[in-house]
């Protein structure tokens, strides 16, 4: 939800990085991004957390 709220505040083209220790977020965020037509920049598993980067497209 924090990602979604933040995306409403930033400019089109801006990238947001989410750091999450929750595997569910790593699965669900790309699905949500696809559904609402933003863009996945990348998802990386780090030591104990995931880095998920999303670009605002609209």
């Amino acid at each position: 939800m924090e990602l979604i709220a933040t995306l409403k505040l930033v400019q089109v083209g801006d990238e947001i990085e989410v750091l999450s220790s929750d595997k569910g977020s790593a699965n669900d965020i790309p699905e949500w991004v696809k559904k609402v037509h933003h863009e996945m920049v990348g998802i990386t598993k780090e030591d104990g957390y995931w880095s998920i980067v999303v670009r605002k497209t609209k």
């Binding site: 939800m1 979604i4 669900d28 949500w32 559904k35 609402v36």
Partner: peptide
């Protein structure tokens, strides 16, 4: 409800 709503 929340996921549905934020998914347009």
């Amino acid at each position: 409800a929340s996921v549905g709503a934020v998914s347009e």
